[in-house]
Design a binder for these strands. Structure first.
Lengths: 342, 342
DNA sequence: CTGAAAGCGCTAACAC
DNA sequence: GTGTTAGCGCTTTCAG
């Protein structure tokens, strides 16, 4: 491995000068710069980022902690986060906790502040309180996509307006004439996605649909679980004309369940999801859903984390990205005539 | 940040002893161990992995370079690789090249041998020759899932037997009576997936189906591209009774295309994919496919990389994981009677 | 504008 | 068993 010292020797200067050439070339005489750069090229010198990190007292690595990357939302998020990080000269360490708080803690304990200068923590089973302690010790932690975290200036949270997102779904179904509506409440890591559901129920209530008219079934956040839950819910409540799922995976499972019990989507049953993962438009019928601005969330989370690393104080506790938008595709339609109230 | 020296001072020993307690406790007197551990606990000491890496001359980080993590095969792979790495005390840096060789080179240049002790390089647009040069410089590079790389002892490759995988698909369709067969040839990063196709065509040839009877259409490796390609192929060749896609995404697109032009799958058209991503069984109709042993591939690639980092020489150039297996689901059926030859 | 020197936090010989 | 010492490769004052 070629070191700074070797480059320095070859260019007839000291290591300090080489370092300057590489970092603040304007502070060095042009002819020297040229000589040093020549040596760098000839020797094929590449800075040792580990040594640099030690000397600077901070690494150029960010960690992204998530519960399970095989949930398709995360790869989409990782892609955006990695791109944002790369643009600012940072690398991204992926920490998959496998829904296991012990793994999450072990990761945090090992990397926060040493291997990774900052950590973006997606919804996990580690409590925000515990994370706040770690943040207190000086690590740049940023929560992301937590549905109900008590964000503080020391532990800010980047998220979307889940209530609003749920409300958009409600408004859409209401306007299509649906009144007998079921809901699948997802339970990912970090607890149930109940804010989304609350937003949904409240928006219906505001339109005169009683909250207890919404039949809710809880399940894990996956296609398979959504399938099972929808089957159960639809057999208990055969008159439902629409189903809201707090995330797209469950909505897709619900569509499959409907097909298997002979209900056509959207003619007999409308289904709407939340998130707008790629699969939502790739699946058939293409899923109507409320889209999250994934790229924006990721890049804000990355930017906020880097700002904290670099000592820039956050201006707010929570960063709500409000741009959830309704994406109408092929799984929602007007409520069947027979069931309409008005 | 609490340092070794502070722990040492508190425990009335030197830094070297603390280091020993943490790394080779059996070499230290039990009472000392206890005293040191107490100090560690009281101070909340956590080793600085950057400093350790610099001192040891190597990091405990692996990089995984892939073209685009939003292709659902990769998250599944990342999950397995990360788990395997974690078990051996390594962290995983995800390097997404966005199908851009310049990004790949930049990553390699920056991290190989400095930030990451080893790099697993998935199929990319950077040539194996170029990678071999980098490997020569001493970085632990391991190729993974390359379809046609000239693996060497200095640059080994972990992969599956693509020919065999293609052959399994061919045998299945043949046994169902299909003779008019189309193929979608995927073009991911790193070139066309032609070994899979060759295996498919050769296996058919071995059964007496002429190679030029297989109508091939090339396209990108995605659901959308598979959809377009299948539509085009099926309209050119309306008598096809079966379609082989060199990967599952394209197969899923093909199923959607068939539906849109009024062909029922599998009654009118059988479709078989390759890889067995999660989506293959989540999709409806559930996709018949040839499965890759993703977990095995990932863990072998990780193990091989770590072995190289730790100085253990690879025994072979190429590691072919031969366990591709046929997974029969709902998209393949006997060829329609009208079209059967025998 | 460049060089000298100290030090980031830890490890690893080698003494004692 | 434990301490001493010398780095790992780089950055960063501070002199000159």
């Amino acid at each position: 491995m070629v070191t700074l010292a070797e480059v320095a020797q070859r260019a007839q200067v000291t290591a300090a000068t080489v370092s300057n050439v590489l970092r603040n070339p304007q502070k060095v005489k042009p002819t020297t710069v040229e000589r040093v750069m020549a040596a760098v090229r000839e020797l094929g010198y590449r800075p040792n980022l580990t040594a640099r990190a030690l000397a600077e007292g901070r690494t150029s690595t960010l960690a992204l902690m998530l519960s399970n990357i095989s949930n398709p939302f995360y790869p989409e998020f990782v892609l955006e986060a990695e791109t944002a990080a790369r643009r600012r000269g940072y690398f991204l360490l992926v920490c998959n906790t496998d829904d296991n708080p012990a793994i999450a803690r072990a990761y945090l304990d090992k990397i926060a502040g040493t291997l990774a200068a900052g950590v973006i923590v997606m919804n996990t089973d580690v409590s925000a309180g515990e994370l706040a302690d770690i943040a207190q010790r000086g690590s740049a932690l940023v929560l992301c996509m937590w549905e109900s975290a008590q964000a503080t200036r020391a532990l800010p949270c980047v998220t979307v307006d889940y209530t609003h997102a749920g409300g958009l779904a409600a408004a859409h179904l209401y306007e299509l004439g649906h009144r007998r509506i079921g809901a699948l409440l997802g339970e990912g890591s970090g607890g149930p996605q109940s804010v989304r559901l609350r937003g949904f129920v409240e928006a219906l209530a505001a339109r005169g649909v009683a909250a207890d008219a919404v039949k809710v079934h809880a399940c894990r956040d996956s296609i398979e679980a959504g399938y099972d839950a929808a089957r159960a819910l639809l057999s208990e409540q055969p008159k439902l004309t629409a189903l809201f799922a707090t995330n797209d995976l469950m909505a897709i499972g619900a569509i499959q369940a409907a097909a298997d019990i002979g209900k056509r989507v959207p003619q007999d049953l409308s289904v709407i999801g939340l998130t707008n993962i790629h699969l939502a438009h790739q699946f058939r019928p293409a899923l109507t859903t409320v889209g999250f601005p994934t790229a924006a969330i990721a890049s804000i989370a990355v930017a906020l984390t880097i700002d904290r690393i670099e000592g820039i104080k956050p201006k707010r506790d929570a960063y709500k990205v409000p741009l959830a938008e309704l994406v109408i595709r092929d799984t929602t339609a007007p409520a069947p005539k027979a069931s309409r109230r008005k």
